[in-house]
Design a protein around this nucleic acid. Structure first.
Lengths: 241, 241
DNA sequence: CGGGGGTTTGAAAAATCTCAAATCTAGTGG
DNA sequence: CCACTAGATTTGAGATTTTTCAAACCCCCG
């Protein structure tokens, strides 16, 4: 199971063996279950998604929710806890999620012992940071249409990179309300925007399935450039699955 | 100079010596100079701020700018380049900035050789990520008044943590337009919001200087909790200056 | 004293949100 | 196989927030 880890490290020789040897346990979460709880007690492991989708969220004083990132197979969802003391947000399963919990201390040790693994983890963390930055931009400076299109592009590309979508389209298993929480809009407005994108012939939708009708133009409308995802890092080192 | 690095690592014994021994060079940037340029060629060093302020920004297709983070003495401003190939954004000096450029390869090696240093760097990177997440929330789900108040709180606290402000107030050397770009609002609206905060007796302003009149209430209005800054990490390991 | 940026203000325009109701859809229990 | 229900998607219309555009002011600087 956890051997998927192997493929994501950039230049692993036989660090793989060490990775596989890590003490771990697979766990399954159903639909809207919390994988990490804000403020919760620090767990003693780090978890990596094997399959399914999950999202990271924070809640406002007024009760509004902001989804801060979406995660799929191959993503570590709580690298933070590798070194930070407290969970400042929570992570929830968006669909059925299979994940491995890895002994945190062992992972730390591995980073120290095997520089290549450490490097892969660093890369992973830095890319995640880059994605956060792009989200700040998306939510802070783009209008509704652009925001939603951008989200679709990012999701599509990441799904493809993870081998979970083909060039046709993809299943976006999120409620329109959740999409809204991800881009900082109301579910109502997301709905109108989605319809607008479809009306303009950029996408076609059938339930939660989104098919691209004009990928180039969609990227353009969404002001999307994949640079920030750093998908090319060291020859597919990252989240290759 | 670069010995300030020492104080930020959580449990440094005499890794300090190694840190000080790093090949480095101090450089000074004036007012609106670029320290890092988007898409620019990867430099061969990482830079840490010694004094002054800088901000990280990305630009939208329509030309809008979003400031994604603000940095002060003790912050690494391009940890990303430690392992990522390309700059996906730029960093500009907000005031006169003194910074040290540290040989990237040497820094990487140091992380490997001295686990304690590596850990400090990890913590630093993870905290930065946490701050980004909070910014996504701020910009995505809070109204103008709350956003601006939140920014003020964060800045105030970080300045204090860095020993650059006292309990009275602080100098916020940003244009209202820049503040707007940081919180995703228009300079005009920032102006009105700032006046509102003052009118409500939360702050008092004199030019760019902001004095708190009711720190508690300001935090409340700004929906601010310092948890996400992880200032307590390992007994002031971080950016203690 | 003349600029040039930055800050204020006003008023109208635009984007987004709210509230509410109508529709749909998948799942449940008869 | 069908009625029924809860949650999700749509749609409409008015209310709000934020943006735009423009002009007035201010203050530091040379």
């Amino acid at each position: 199971m956890a051997r998927r880890l192997r493929s994501r490290a950039d230049l692993d020789d036989e660090d793989c063996r060490a990775i596989i040897a890590l003490p771990h346990a697979v766990r399954v979460y159903e639909a809207p279950a919390y994988i990490i709880r804000e403020g919760g007690p620090p767990t003693s492991y780090c978890t990596l998604i094997l399959s399914g989708l999950a999202f990271r969220q924070k809640v406002t004083l007024t009760g509004a929710r902001q989804i801060v990132s979406i995660h799929m197979a191959g993503d570590f969802i709580d690298l933070q806890h590798l070194f930070l003391k407290r969970a400042d947000h929570s992570v929830q399963a968006l669909s059925r999620v299979e994940a491995v919990d890895i002994e945190r201390s062992a992972l730390r040790q591995l980073i120290i012992d095997r520089p290549a693994v450490g490097r892969a983890m660093w890369t992973d963390a830095l890319i995640e940071g880059s994605v956060f930055r792009e989200w700040v931009v998306n939510v802070g400076r783009r209008d509704a249409k652009t925001r939603v299109a951008h989200l679709l592009c990012e999701f599509a590309l990441r799904m493809q990179a993870a081998g979970l979508a083909n060039g046709e389209g993809f299943e976006l298993p999120m409620t329109q309300e959740q999409i809204g929480d991800a881009v900082g809009l109301t579910s109502v407005h997301v709905n109108r925007t989605l319809k607008l994108l479809a009306a303009e012939g950029l996408i076609e939708r059938d339930k939660r399935f989104v098919k691209y009708r004009d990928w180039q133009r969609l990227q353009h409308v969404g002001d999307f450039t994949s640079l920030y995802l750093h998908l090319d890092q060291a020859g597919g080192e990252q989240k290759t699955l």
